[in-house]
Amino acid sequence: MTNVWRAGLQRGRIELRHLLRSPKEMSGHLTNVVVALVIAVYVTGDVPGTHVPTAHLVLAGFAAYLLFQIGLVNLPQILVTEREEGTLLRLRATPGGIPAYLVAKSMLVVVMAAGTLALLLAVAALLVDGPLPHGPGGWLTLLWVTTLGLLAVVPLGAAVGAVLPNPREALALIMLPTMALLFTSGTVFPSTSLPVPVQQVAAVFPLKWMAQGLRSALLPDTARTAEAAGSWELPMVALVLTAWAVLGFLLAVPLLRRAARRESGSRLSARHRKAAQSGALPA
């Protein structure tokens, strides 16, 4: 068991180094941060009924969205790609390989999430007078909302990654619902301007609650008057996110197990043939 942790952490460190040295992937993550900052610069005025700049609301919303994206877009893509390349199969054929893989991926996701969040908040605070938590209470809220938010989306993302067919179709299948949630969850503008049924549907998913939780951590308490409920509803944030975390784990464990079990040399070859036929993979 100690071996699994050692191998997993080593694997996580190496993957992280590869990520940091990959211009393509790094620019993907950095673009998100830049987009958030640019929007924050162009958004003017205050949140209606408060003295909080709308830019702060947008930045808090983007922070939530970036966490959401790492769990439900980046992670499934990594899983599907590595399944297709045979990484999963090699680890399955290696003693302790699959547990080490999960340790490495968890480490990677946590570091990616924390790094992105820290970068966004720090750069925003420095350049565009962005929001930072007020006092220890605010920092504490930031910590638990981020942790619970990741627990809500990461297992779910792993489950999605286990069932998606291949990296080419995966992106299309994930991005559409993600974008829909981005615009209906009150992340980039107050959801109160949307029709009530749309708000109700968005409230089922974790993004709305992650954004609301982060707003409570980053914005002054007076800003809660602009919330749909007139308060931060923190107990509800904790409840919904916990529910998604439980659901995600319940789905991810059997689905990942099934995905790993189904891997074999001939399935890998069959996928490569298919990919080569569609011209998507270098031979």
Partner: peptide, 26 residues
């Protein structure tokens, strides 16, 4: 048991020695 399959394309970004050293730890 050791396995050499024909269709592995995994760990593309890893360096050769790094990959071998990593798998030795298992």
């Amino acid at each position: 048991i050791g396995l050499v399959l024909q269709s592995w394309r995994d760990h593309r970004r890893w360096r050769v020695a790094e990959l071998l050293t990593h798998f030795a730890t298992y």
